[in-house]
Design a protein around this nucleic acid. Structure first.
Lengths: 343, 343
DNA sequence: CGCCACGGCTGCAACGTTGTAACTCACGCT
DNA sequence: AGCGTGAGTTACAACGTTGCAGCCGTGGCG
């Protein structure tokens, strides 16, 4: 059995509370008493019982992180960042998976008994919509990530999807691309990353006075690599030609790039490609993939900071925070494209 | 404030203990009482306080998972599998990162106060060695994963590295490869994945009576994609020729494959490539990458099962469990290679 | 008829910690 | 001498739960 305050107190010949005071570096303790207690602590190898402390204080020092799937690189990298940010705040992270966009599981997670021992939750939904916003009125501190649910009663940390997508598209336009395909649109989606990035794409086209061609919109309900490949293959098969591709995620872009190359086209000479997310692996594809760093580290830091503030009871929830983004120019959009000979 | 047993008891006009009995589906309760208590529970929205229950019972229902980095795909997928396996056992997972092979951090993790509220730990070290085995004698249930520490006093779940590496090499040999390079050896390593996989490689060569050529051993201390690319580039730069490459991990193999293609060689026609780990993304590379599924799901299931047994106090620790492996034959090793014209 | 068994329920103590109030000195001031 | 002050320490209660012993009443059995 592990030693308790009582054991230490008995050995040191003081009261339990004095030992507790020593553990907490309380000021008014005689040096002699302090060292006697310290010795007893060392001798018994005493470690405070966190569970008892939690019961007493109402805090566990644990925060929950609910996200779709760790095996998706984006969420693996996000969890990495959240855990590191939490560690800096002396918190530890309990990770739950909701599956890839399973709305019911996401909603169930919000009232899961498994989260009881958590001081608060960072929640990244993929299946809920703004219609479900009122479900975010939970009786514990909550910070929501992502683009699925807006207008809820919780703090919200998100990225500048429209502006970042506009910048990505603009990069292709500046490089000389005139027929730019997107990969990753969702058929029935009004909110969410896909809709916002599509909006940014259209804004960039409009700014450059380029026409919007529905044939250049590749639909992909899931955003795995295979989905990007299939969408690209389908587009190429219909004979639609493009000189630039904007993948709404890096995995989509990498899948699409594979199909472009398999079709005998060169990247970036024939088709330039840019992704979104700045996954580590984009630095090592062939060619290296240009992408958007939408501020994942900053999102993790901000989410943890907001959650800590909410746990401490400071500030009112409901604010929306946008992270900064960066365009990462790599090989897949390198070079300058001359005037289009076919135009 | 959340409702407690006391509140429910007062509302239902029964004792606290009766409410507790209802919550726990205790048998001998009059239906009338039961429904009255149930109604009070619903009215107040009572949820048991897990922290208090933990203090009383000594169990938290939380297990720890300590691994190097979630942003490495292998560990992201491992964590995914562990969390799913834990969920089936009604456990929730607290994830800690030790960094990529930081021995001191790994050792510190074993006695971290942050794990106090955990019933046990699944630990995947990357920097420790068998010299540190006695450090695994911790006063809580522990299951160790991986190839770094053998002979410790904890349960151990691992993969059949030697046999699986032999099978991977054998696949290349059967395909007709005669000069097979490996990527991912570590200079100073006696134990660990690299050493074991190198041993399997050498056994397969010996079986086929092929010579072992040190020039074909590519060193890579880290196993990111960039390390595989660099090792391969270095080997190609020295003029060493090979017709097959066995990457000790999928990321290494994918990095190596990129360099092979960048050098103007075709995969699999000029050089066949096989990896190790069966990462999801190997299904979507160009060409798709043959690899070894070393039994990640089974490892996660077994680790959770053993930990549960140890928490329950059943069985003595110290056993080593080996997962089954599968060879996944894909495009990167497709086709039959004729007799080597240069031979 | 007396006793036991048992269904149905209650009260108390305990898990290990911490906040609050209070106690005991020693000291210095009036 | 009497009193306030504050350092050093302690006792007690409480956080919300569950195990245990035990209470009361009813019905069956010898």
């Amino acid at each position: 059995m592990a030693a308790t305050l009582r054991d230490v107190a008995a050995l040191a010949g003081v009261s339990i509370k004095t030992v507790s005071n020593v553990v907490h570096d309380f000021e008014h303790i005689r040096p002699a008493t302090r060292s006697r207690v310290r010795a007893a602590i060392d001798e018994l190898g005493y470690k405070p019982n966190i569970t008892a402390r939690s019961l007493r204080s109402g805090r566990t020092g644990v925060i929950g992180l609910a996200l779709p799937e760790l095996s998706l690189s984006y969420f693996g990298e996000l969890a990495d960042a959240v855990i590191r940010a939490a560690e800096r705040a002396n918190l530890v992270v309990l990770v739950e998976q909701t599956g890839g966009g399973d709305r019911d599981r996401e909603i169930a997670m919000l009232s899961s008994a498994r989260l009881q021992m958590t001081d608060g939750l960072i929640f990244s939904p993929l299946g809920m919509t703004s219609d479900d916003a009122q479900l975010l009125a939970v009786p514990y501190p909550l910070v929501v990530l992502g683009e699925r649910v807006f207008g809820g009663p919780a703090d919200h940390v998100t990225m500048q999807n429209v502006a970042a997508a506009r910048a990505a598209t603009r990069l292709l336009i500046d490089r000389g691309c005139r027929r730019i395909a997107v990969i990753g649109a969702r058929a029935d989606e009004a909110v969410g990353s896909a809709a916002l990035r599509l909006q940014g794409y259209r804004e960039a086209l409009a700014e450059a006075e380029l026409p919007f061609d529905p044939e250049l919109v590749g639909v992909a309900e899931q955003w795995h690599r295979v989905d990007g490949a299939e969408a690209m293959r389908a587009m190429l098969a219909t004979g639609v030609r493009c000189d630039g591709v904007f993948g709404f995620s890096d995995t989509l872009a990498l899948g699409a790039m594979r199909e472009i190359q398999a079709a005998g086209l060169r990247v970036p000479e024939d088709v330039a490609v840019i992704g979104f997310d700045a996954l580590d692996e984009t630095r090592f594809s062939l060619p290296t993939l240009s992408t958007i760093d939408a501020g994942r580290e900053q999102i993790a830091d901000t989410a943890v900071r907001l959650l800590v503030e909410r746990i401490a009871g400071r500030s009112e929830p409901g604010a929306v925070h946008f992270a900064d983004f960066t365009v990462l120019q790599r090989e897949s959009t390198a070079g300058e494209r001359g005037p289009d000979p076919a135009a």
